[in-house]
């Protein structure tokens, strides 16, 4: 069971208070009506699904109800950082190797 630092509450809480919501930083296209079926399908369903560093969206569902992002290693399950919506992660895919 994960121990998750909520960047809004400012403390670690048990995973049972949170829901995982999938890949982070998926921006809804500015003009959906201009998207092709392929572009829209890509937005809806297609995911990076990496083994290793992954940025994912979580919500502190039974807590402050805030959504925030987690950078986590999907192999070791280590949480490397959590940050608020609108903030940028310190770790990005290009620093992936540093974590291995």
């Amino acid at each position: 069971m994960f121990y998750i630092y909520c960047p809004y509450c400012g403390e670690h809480r048990e995973e049972e208070e949170f829901h995982a919501k999938g890949q982070a930083h998926l921006a809804r296209p500015e003009d959906p009506d201009a998207c092709s079926d392929e572009e829209w399908g890509n937005f809806l369903y297609f995911r990076s699904n990496p083994r290793g560093l992954y940025h994912e969206l979580w919500v502190h569902a039974i807590g402050c109800r805030k959504f925030f992002n987690i950078a986590r290693d999907t192999q070791t399950y280590e949480i490397l950082e959590t940050y608020r919506i609108g903030e940028s992660p310190n770790l990005s895919q290009s620093t992936e190797q540093l974590q291995s």
Partner: peptide
């Protein structure tokens, strides 16, 4: 479960999560 990793090697993504 490793489909996403293989797809990435081939240069595309899948509508799949592991």
């Amino acid at each position: 479960g490793n489909s996403g990793v293989l797809a990435k090697m081939a240069g595309f993504e899948l509508p799949v999560e592991s």
